[in-house]
Each structure stands twice: as structure tokens, then as C-alpha cells.
């Protein structure tokens, strides 16, 4: 059931189809391979297990130390649909070879975490292929999703890009004295980082 405010709003039907499709997943467990791409971080790809249950926070477990992105793993688009919003049609774009409709999501409630979001939704399979969300506090992050089979509900690969400040260590900690290039540091104080998650879902349970 859609919330009351959605019934009264003029929300693009493609988005509603995508949401319904995502809501059909009751739970799943997936193996994750996380690859971090941040200039000042060198970390080999890590393995983790992700457990999603509808209506509950997603949990992660791993034997190693892993970085779990705070954003980009909201498969149910619950963050977007939490408060009333309106959609604006921005046209079409081909993403990963699929025709996608671009939609701006503009929240109508100031309690919403984000100021604007852009989604690219596959018009054939109603899968979210791309999202760009400008949060109020945590900057802007982009998510690119690709799917193994075109009709898969759960993406096979998710790339999350975000802004991250250059690490600044005031004292020499735990390492060799490094050459501090101050001018380079000033230019690159805010950088973009990326994390790539390769997902192998298993035990997918759909809503009956």
C-alpha cells in the first residue's frame, strides 16, 4: 500500500513501478565484494555479507575490517519515499545500454534529508540505474547500478561516488615522515571517493 500522500501526488508512474518492484523483495542475503577507490586509501577488495529484510535496517558482517558506505545501499528507496515529494520529468538517457527516464525528486517536507535527487529508471524493466542525491548535511553522492540479468531486481554492481575531505594528520603518527606538499593539499582538500560493491544475492525471498 502506498502512503496517503502518494496517492494524492502527481508522481511519475515509472517511479511508482520501480518502487513496487523493489517492494516485492521481502528479504535477501548477498555476498559483497567491496572495492574502495579513494586517493588516500589503499585497501584491497574485501568480502562481506549483507542481509536485507524489508522494514528493518540492513546488516553487514565480515571477518575483515570493511568500510560500509553510509549512502547508496538504500535499495528500497525508503529515504526518498519517507516524506512527500514531487517529480519532474527531465527527459531520457541511455544508461548501461538501457533506455532510462530521468526524474528529479524534490521533497515537499523540510524534514527530508535531501534537497533534490535525480533518478534514472529503466523504462523497460523499471530498475533504478542511476541516482544522484544532494543531501542537506553530507554532500552529494551518486550511485550507479548495473544488473546481471536485465530483469534482476537486486543489482549485481553498485558504484557509490561521494565527496570526501583530504586526510590531514597534524602530527607524525604511525609512519615514516612524509613530504607534505602544502600547495597540493590546499587544491585537493575536498576529493571524490568511490566504493564499488559487487553483489551476489542469494536466498532472495519475495513478498507473497
Amino acid at each position: 500500500m502506498l502512503p496517503q500522500w502518494m496517492c494524492a501526488q502527481d508522481i511519475d508512474p515509472v517511479l511508482l513501478q520501480a518502487k513496487a518492484r523493489l517492494d516485492s523483495v521481502q528479504s535477501f542475503e548477498a555476498g559483497l565484494k567491496l572495492s574502495v577507490d579513494i586517493s588516500f586509501v589503499n585497501m584491497s577488495p574485501k568480502q562481506a555479507t549483507m542481509t536485507y529484510t524489508k522494514g528493518e535496517p540492513t546488516t553487514f558482517s565480515s571477518e575483515d575490517f570493511v568500510l560500509i558506505p553510509k549512502r547508496g545501499l538504500d535499495f528500497s528507496l525508503s529515504e526518498i519515499f519517507e516524506y512527500p515529494f514531487m517529480t519532474v520529468d527531465r527527459g531520457y538517457e541511455v544508461i548501461f545500454g538501457r533506455p532510462c527516464k530521468l526524474l528529479n525528486i524534490i521533497p515537499l517536507d523540510k524534514r527530508a534529508d535531501f534537497s533534490i535527487a535525480t533518478l534514472g529508471v529503466d523504462t523497460v524493466n523499471y530498475s533504478v540505474m542511476k541516482s544522484e542525491i544532494s543531501t542537506k548535511k553530507d554532500g552529494t553522492y551518486e550511485v550507479l547500478l548495473s544488473y546481471g540479468q536485465s530483469n534482476d531486481i537486486i543489482p549485481g554492481r553498485v558504484e557509490v561516488s561521494f565527496e570526501i575531505e583530504r586526510i590531514r594528520i597534524p602530527l607524525q603518527y604511525m609512519g615514516k615522515e612524509i613530504e607534505v606538499d602544502k600547495s597540493a593539499m590546499k587544491m585537493e582538500e575536498v576529493k571524490r571517493g568511490r566504493i564499488i560493491l559487487d553483489i551476489e544475492p542469494a536466498l532472495v525471498e519475495l513478498v507473497k
Binding site: 586509501v41 562481506a48 575490517f65 570493511v66 560500509i68 553510509k70
Partner: peptide, 29 residues
């Protein structure tokens, strides 16, 4: 304290699963 300083920027964008305050860090220090 050292880990807090080193990972401060990452903490804004990531949750950490697992602990870095382990025997390897102690031996390294």
C-alpha cells in the same frame, strides 16, 4: 585516539565493520 584521527574523514562517509584496534596494530606500534 590514533585511529580516531586517522579515520575521522572516512567516518563521515562510511560505517566501520570490524576493529582496527587489534594485535597487529599493537605490534606495529
Amino acid at each position: 585516539a590514533i585511529l580516531d584521527i586517522l579515520l575521522d574523514n572516512l567516518r563521515e562517509s562510511f560505517y566501520f565493520q570490524g576493529t582496527l584496534l587489534n594485535g597487529h596494530l599493537m605490534v606495529y606500534l
